[in-house]
Design a protein around this nucleic acid. Structure first.
Length: 848
RNA sequence: GGGCGUGUAGCUCAGUUGGUCAGAGCCCCCGCCUUACAAGCGGGUGGUCGGAGGUUCGAGUCCUCUCGCGCCCA
């Protein structure tokens, strides 16, 4: 035990000790019932670890530590999400390169010494992936170091990355089984498309953003020539117009239904149709349907069985070839002015042409409206018809949807109201899950297609590998029955060029971490997992997708509980984010306040509740940690480090009262933890501890030094019992300081110790009444107040203390301790019926 | 527009099933060298619990309406 205990260097010391002792290792000999398994969220390593991560991972760690102390074998792995677009972008910027699959592999490639993000060097897909692997490996080391310093009790032998071979194997195996069972399918259909990243995007990745736009009033022409006015925010799509639509009940357009009109400028004849989704209140009540301007167009196109005349290409530009229907020379010339232009330019030119033809009525009317974006993109999404892979998720089948809602109800949600978010999402789905992405750094689809005699792929006859061959890369591996020289040749084969959505891999995190089909012995001990902690913003993606995959593969929920953490808000109540520049680096905070202090702040954030970033709370956490050091040192120096607590020696009413109060704290903290209310467990423990320091310790200080009397032995034993219990109660929250103080007088790690139970020290409490401690402390407070108001030192003598009231009887049982702590010469107690405890303190005349 | 959450001292937050529930910590003010801790200790000043109705003997605590903020979805 050091003379002057300190938090300095405490993290380095214990991180090493824990690593060497393996105290957090999962005992895989334990059966499922004795295991507590956690489906840890794999943080995106291409981003930086921010304070929000520290916040939520601390919550999980506290629960993991509690369960471990309760005797569970805790399966607490860590994953890294390195698969996907964020990593591609980071690699592009970091090395100044971009992936160009047409460039051949260069085994000697070295990235530019001075990366220039503006002039990225095109490199082969394989070189690009090598750089992704290299950079993510470095990032993961940094992350692990921070997690260790934060004190996460992860078993570092169990880590995974969403791009590693195990994850690729699991993702491909699950996909092949989905395919075989008909849960995955390929379809050519209108798809939300990000033109910057040139990839398809799923419903779950959409977000609406308010953008300026303008209503353009356009004149279409009836067969007789008289105009029909429509309003559109996307005049550039006029060439893609396939119909007009109005509400079936709209009186204004009854005569037009089942007739046709001609488009302005292009003179294409299009039908006028009726559909309930046409809003009579909006614009002129009649709209043009284009293939495709928005998702409503897709609905109309599908339900009204309209033609397809797409004009926007994968690059977001107007395609060179005019769509069907543009027959006249003028129409083709007009289209020629748009071909190759961006959407923005095309709109300007189209408006120009409409002005020339006189079909633009009035001036465009500026508005602000919500536009769909890919959440990681910065250009509006287009809708392009492409061939994509889908996994069923209930978006098209009520039966499956209902089953998935039911699975959600099998889960225990912390907090419970988060379940509503899940159900709202599932019930609002309008399509299956699009899982293919036209990107590079991801898990490839384990599929090849035969090429027919003309060299065209036969998508209806995909070739799949045997599961034993996984993972495969169809761009370099050869399908069964073919040779490499048949790649890309007529009569040969081609590999599917796409990769899976990153959620298609991370939705298998319980299987990947748990050893599904790789280590079945492990898997049956940990799956379904006990807990899925995660942010509430990814209920619709990660949580939902994981439920879907587990339903298909195992016919069960993937876990029993899920805990949704809140966000960290800056002092202005805004979500902290990099773009706002209000992010604080965790490592600086850990160094400034100590890991325990930062954990203390985090542990004060309740499940699902957004929490203010508050360094003040970290200061308090630091104070608490230091107090634990000092109070422990004091108690141990009084009692003797190697002294053993003897429950039978606890005889004084005040000591028994303290232990009885502590028993209540233990019971309360335990049930709070069982209900995932770690914050309450901490609050109760902390409250008790500070009161113990302020009152009980001061009261028994003198007596505890008395080595002669039984009263002294009583105090010392009670102190040691309380200390042991408190060290363990604090261990899940302040693991460093808890193990430090524990090590001064106990064998082994506090983190391997048994969680305290009231039964342990009930006998020592001997039916003690917490009211004795409460009343005694109240008298002590009154004495202090008198001294404080007289501006006296707490060491000042007191002539007389007169206590009366209902609980005077309780205080009387601590007469000697009050006299000693208050330095009171005379004490009188009068038990009356008065509810309020009255304390009269008489100070020596000289002191007044 | 629909769903969910939230609004309690200057700040951050507790307040289980309605009855010492008007609290804690921080901040601020006034004191105290008290050998565990001056990175400490003691004491004190702060609120008609967003607003309006209602149920009840009694409501931050239940109901209705309303205002503000936040998130999710259209």
């Amino acid at each position: 035990m050091p003379d002057r205990p300190s938090l300095d260097g405490i993290e380095e010391k214990w991180v090493d000790v824990w690593d060497e002792s393996g105290v957090y290792h999962f005992d895989r000999t334990r059966e499922r019932g004795d295991v507590f398994s956690i489906d840890t969220p794999p943080p995106t390593v291409s981003g930086s670890l921010h304070i929000g991560h520290v916040f939520s991972y601390t919550h999980t760690d506290a629960v993991a530590r509690f369960q471990r102390m309760r005797g569970k074998a805790v399966f607490y792995p860590m994953g890294w999400d390195d698969n996907g677009l964020p990593t591609e972008r980071r690699v592009q910027n970091y090395y100044g390169v971009r992936c160009d699959p047409s460039v051949p592999y260069d085994p000697d490639f070295a990235p530019p010494a001075k990366p220039d993000p503006k002039r990225q060097v095109p490199i082969s897909r394989r070189n690009f992936i090598e750089l992704c692997d290299r950079l993510t490996a470095e990032d993961e080391k940094v992350f692990e170091a921070i997690w260790r310093r934060l004190g996460l009790s992860v078993d570092w032998r169990h880590t995974y990355a969403t791009i590693d071979a195990d994850a690729r194997t699991a993702a491909q195996r699950a996909f092949l089984r989905n395919l075989a069972r008909g849960e995955a399918y390929m379809s050519e259909a209108p798809t939300l498309w990000d033109v910057t990243f040139r990839t398809a995007v799923a419903q779950a990745e959409l977000e609406d953003r308010e953008r300026p736009g303008a209503y353009h009033r356009l004149a279409f022409h009836r067969p007789g020539g008289e105009p029909v006015h429509i309003e559109t925010t996307r005049p550039e799509l006029l060439a893609a117009c396939v119909a007009l639509v109005a509400h079936p009940d709209d009186e204004r357009y009854q005569d037009l239904f089942s007739g046709t009109v001609r488009t302005p400028v292009f003179g294409v004849e299009v039908p006028v149709r009726a559909h309930r989704l046409a809003d009579p209140e909006k614009g002129s009540g009649i709209a043009m349907i284009c293939t495709f301007g928005d998702t409503t167009d897709v609905t109309w196109w599908r339900e009204l069985q309209l033609e397809t005349r797409p004009i926007i290409g994968w690059d977001g530009r107007i395609v060179a070839e005019p769509p069907a229907g543009l027959e006249t020379e003028e129409a083709r010339l007009a289209y020629g002015r748009l071909a190759g232009a961006t959407v923005h330019t095309a709109r300007e030119r189209m408006v120009e042409m409409l002005r020339e033809s006189g079909d633009l009525v009035g001036e465009p009317r500026p508005i602000t409206h919500p536009v769909k974006f890919y959440e990681k993109g910065d250009k509006p999404l287009e809708i392009v018809t492409t061939r994509q892979w889908y996994i069923r998720n209930g978006g098209r089948e009520a039966e499956l949807r209902g089953r998935l809602v039911e699975r959600g109800r099998e889960l225990t949600w912390y907090p419970a109201f988060m379940r509503a978010r899940y159900e709202n999402w599932v019930e609002g789905l309008n399509g299956d899950w699009l899982v293919s992405r036209q990107r590079f750094f991801g898990v490839p689809f384990p599929v090849w297609y035969p090429l027919d005699a003309e060299g065209n792929p036969r998508y209806d006859a995909p070739i799949v590998p045997d599961e034993s061959a996984l993972p495969v890369d169809p761009s370099s591996d050869v399908p069964p029955g073919y040779t490499e020289d048949q790649r890309g040749r007529a009569g040969g084969f081609m590999g599917d060029p796409d990769v899976m959505d990153t959620w298609a891999t991370s939705s298998l995190s319980p299987q990947i971490a748990g050893g599904w089909e790789r280590d079945e012995d492990l898997f049956r001990r940990v799956f379904p997992m006990d807990l899925r902690p995660q942010g509430h913003d990814i209920i619709r993606t990660w949580l939902f997708a994981t439920v879907v995959r587990s339903e298909f593969e195992h016919g069960s929920v993937p876990w029993r509980r899920t805990a949704l953490s809140g966000w960290i808000l800056d002092p202005d109540r805004k979500k902290m984010s990099k773009s706002k520049g209000n992010v604080v680096t965790p490592i600086d905070l850990l160094e400034k306040y100590s890991s325990d202090a930062v954990r203390y702040w985090a542990a004060n954030g309740r499940p699902g509740t957004d929490t203010a970033f508050d360094e003040g709370q970290m200061k308090i956490g630091r104070r608490l940690a230091i107090k634990i050091l000092n109070a422990s040192k004091f108690a141990l120096s009084v009692a003797g480090e190697d002294a053993a607590a003897d429950p039978a020696a606890v005889t004084e009413p005040l000591d028994r009262a303290m232990l009885a109060a502590l028993a209540e704290v233990v019971e309360d903290a335990t049930s709070a933890f069982e209900g995932y209310d770690y914050t309450r467990a901490l609050e109760r423990t902390e409250r008790f501890f500070w009161d113990l320091c302020d009152d009980y310790l001061e009261l028994v200080k003198v007596r505890a030094y008395d080595s002669e009397s039984p009263a002294g032995a009583s105090a010392r034993s009670a102190l040691l019992i309380a200390l042991s219990v408190l060290h363990r109660l604090f261990a899940p929250f302040l693991p460093f300081v808890a193990d430090e103080v524990w090590s001064w007088w106990q064998e082994g790690s506090v983190h391997a110790a048994r969680w305290p139970e009231a039964a342990e020290f009930r006998s020592a409490a001997q039916g003690g009444d917490p009211a004795v401690l409460a009343a005694t402390a109240e008298v002590l407070r009154a004495v202090r107040k008198a001294k404080s108001e007289a501006k006296l030192s707490m060491r000042a003598d007191v002539e007389r203390v007169m206590v009366s009231g209902k609980s005077a009887e309780y205080a009387r049982q601590s007469r000697a301790d009050i006299a000693a702590a208050g330095r009171a010469a005379a004490l009188e107690f009068e038990t009356t019926d008065e509810a309020e405890l009255r304390v009269e303190v008489t100070l020596p005349a000289a002191a007044e």
